[in-house]
Write a protein that binds this DNA or RNA. Structure first.
Lengths: 196, 196, 196, 196
DNA sequence: AACTAATCGAGACGGTACGTCTAGTCTTTCG
DNA sequence: CGAAAGACTAGACGTACCGTCTCGATTAGTT
């Protein structure tokens, strides 16, 4: 057989199709960036039909989301003994991931497309919850060590870190690995002078 | 003449055209949202030709940016006597602006389109610099009052606030006016326990 | 069971399927016209699978043909005593059939689709032979009565009548019952002046 | 210039576009037959955009019609001295045209598509009126010669001839040039025996 | 009683064309 | 000479059918 045809396997979803489509999408992303990732191009590359694409990923945004979700994030959460060190390690790995892989661009577009598609917004939120969970672990470890200020709202603190990372991503101002420790320093530093 | 035709005024730019185009764009935004704002629609509504549009705003993103920039920001910077009070007032006004006007949506899309168009990214940065300047004023006033922790990096602190606001905007989690004081509280609270 | 599923009845054709398919096709024709009659729609309506459809009616045209053939033609061939009267009665009944039932539209499309599918062309010819046979009977009766011109080619004459009927059908100029006698008159009238 | 781009020539229809589209359509017809003539293929071949195609030819049928109309019919109407001879010459030329050029197939499909599109039906009728006009001339000449039967309805007679030609076309039974004189003979022969 | 063979409903699949939409470019004509 | 008008290329969009396929269930004959 000259063409490795991937026909129907009966009245049920062919997992090979999903694999092929996501792989094609990732390849296109890596080669031509996000604006090259059209449904048409993915279909062609994956040797899938547009009908199949739209059956399982009803919009471009949903496909983008699937691609983003499929990107495994094996980010480390090493125990360096201090919150500062842990954050430098973890956030640094994440920023590197965003900078060097297409995932950063995808995320940025997902954020935009989430506006028009509530489903994407929802999915993005779920994604975020799963992914930022690691930060909570770092904070919990710091609390166990007695590093945290008494009465600190851990959730708000988590948001503070996430927000900064997003801001860096979205404004194209991701700090270099060398600068990151200073940035984390500033993030953890108190704003107000101690009362009294 | 039944139609107030806006012909050429000679060999120079007609300022009425710019006004008409921006007004048309804003109307369309208000009526049909961001995806209704096509170059074609704006040209038609403004009774301008597409050529004229493209002469002055070379891409859709640039037009969006112009619309966003044209939105007057008469945000107040009242002196409430404390950084906390000032931030609640100022950030609250900004969030209300984002929530209730089309500007919020426009900004979100601009962020996305800035990726593909460096010019937009640049312009967005300039915009940000001009707008967030007010926060710097609040921080400076607080410093004069002796509120701030010694050695605080004011720029980093400003970023911290801006980042949080963007995050709220982009994740559709803008806090209600009632919740805002608590959020600002958390933002200003120290993370780490005082070294002792 | 709420749905009276029409499963296989073993290693032979299930006659209920044919019935259901043809009924569904006729219903769709009546409701949505000829362009609504897609294989997909018929399969869905008949609760038959597309595979089953294609097994027995290998193309849309063949299905159309089956629908057309299934329409009983109980056209009368009364003996009115003259060829003119017989033709008015018979052709009139046929034209009424074409005008008032979906069959007229089906036939028109069959004619078109016959071009691409020789099988349909063939089947249509057979159909025609069977159906126009009645005209031959009328002509034979007329011959027995001595009505016909000596040396007349009956087959050519039959074609002449059929051609005119098709032409009326295809150009949407089917004469009204009131006009038909005149038309038949014209059809039978000699073109050339008698020689000599 | 490597690409002979055919841009707009201002706010009016570019005749080069129409030419290119019709030429492309004719080429496709000649090469791949009628089912190869898709709007997509024509657009691609003519280097025209689909938008332009649909602007001027709102449907495939309209495009087909334009192609058919564009085919000049320089059919001769020689004066052979008898109606029979004239018809053999004229109808023979027309049948040859239908047999040897793609026009025959196009006409067959136009007839079919005219059913769904009244506009095409109308246009086809106009086309027919213009084209069959020649037959009227032949009949008029015959009348002047005193060939025709007194009281003959010339319009009905014309229809009779046209109907037969269409029938031959549509049933794939176009007579050979050798057989045509006999067929015309039959067409002109009286059906009924002379009264008396 | 097990096995074979064919039928059936279901629906996924690769394709292809549809008709619509938007972006951005271009030329003519008018004032 | 600028502006309006609008035709033009390019190509993505999402939809609809096409005709083929595999699955799993079903049942009539055969062994």
């Amino acid at each position: 057989m000259t063409q490795p045809s991937r026909a129907s396997i009966g009245a049920k979803r062919n997992p090979a199709t999903e694999t092929a489509v996501l792989a094609a999408a990732q390849d296109i992303l890596a080669e031509g960036g996000i604006q090259a990732l059209t449904m048409e191009a993915v279909a062609k590359r994956a040797r899938a039909s547009k009908a199949t694409l739209y059956r399982w990923w009803p919009s471009r945004a949903r496909l983008l989301l699937a691609v983003y979700s499929a990107s495994k994030d094996s980010l480390p959460t090493p125990d360096t003994g201090s919150l500062h060190g842990d954050l430098v390690a973890y956030v640094g790995a994440m920023l590197r991931h965003w900078s060097e892989m297409p995932e950063g661009r995808v995320l940025r577009h997902l954020i935009a497309e989430a506006q028009s598609e509530p489903a994407v917004m929802e999915a993005l939120k779920a994604q975020r919850a799963a992914r930022w969970h690691h930060i909570r672990q770092l904070l919990d470890r710091a609390a166990a060590r007695g590093e945290l200020a008494p009465g600190l709202d851990v959730a708000a603190c988590e948001t503070r870190i996430a927000a900064l990372a997003w801001f860096w991503l979205l404004t194209d101002t991701i700090p270099t690995p060398a600068d990151l420790p200073t940035e984390i320093d500033q993030l953890l530093a108190p704003v107000l002078a101690p009362a009294g």
